[in-house]
Nucleic acid binder design. Structure first.
Lengths: 108, 108
DNA sequence: AAACTAAGACTGTCTTAGCAG
DNA sequence: CTGCTAAGACAGTCTTAGTTT
């Protein structure tokens, strides 16, 4: 029996789900990857994605790591900027600094 | 008498404080700007900045708006990327899309 | 004036257990 | 198997009130 949903998915849940599906992982797998016991893993990740519960930032950080994205990706409102943040994170610190420095010139 | 601090400032608190000081606002003012009653405004913002309490994402969104930064700014680990996100947010949607599209080419 | 914090009230999350697709 | 959710246990935040600088 399905009852009421409660809350609508916030930006974090939306990003979690799309990225998880992109990687072909189950909710349980993501939970186990961040150290949650498999007995409650599905329940927790499900509610994060649906937005009924919200993960603390430290938990969000573990999730971001498991999904191979930077923390800010999970809180980014614009799809194109989110993808850009994800791709930038694959670069080394030195490369990143050089690129960002160059891009900041483009903004003037 | 000052006792124990509890938690250390997380990334959200760190970004909140530096941006607030950059704008020359008091903690109370930021709280009032996001609709908190002035009687509890200082207390709440103080604990967000110190990391003893963590704001829900919807509250973080209001704070980001009050500080004129995108939500992702508050969760961005790298200083240079955070500043870049802030500057990018001043552009129109059309300009942003064009720039991000161009920058994604730079990443290859 | 501005920032910080203890304590109790209050609100949200987590585990368990089980249902639904 | 995978995802979703009710309920009680549990952990967090919020208001108040007052201290510290």
């Amino acid at each position: 029996m399905v009852t009421e949903s409660g809350a609508s998915p916030n930006i974090v849940g939306k990003r979690m789900r799309s990225r998880r599906e992109e990687l072909g992982l189950s909710q349980e797998r993501v939970g186990v990857l961040i150290g949650i016991d498999e007995s409650s893993s599905r329940a927790r990740i499900s509610r994060y994605e649906l937005g009924t519960h919200e993960p603390p930032v430290e938990t969000a950080r573990l999730i971001a790591k498991a999904l191979s994205v930077p923390l800010a990706y999970l809180y980014c409102d614009e799809d194109d900027v989110a993808v850009w943040l994800m791709e930038l994170a694959t670069k080394s610190t030195g490369q990143r600094k050089a690129l960002v420095s160059q891009w900041r010139q483009d903004l003037r």
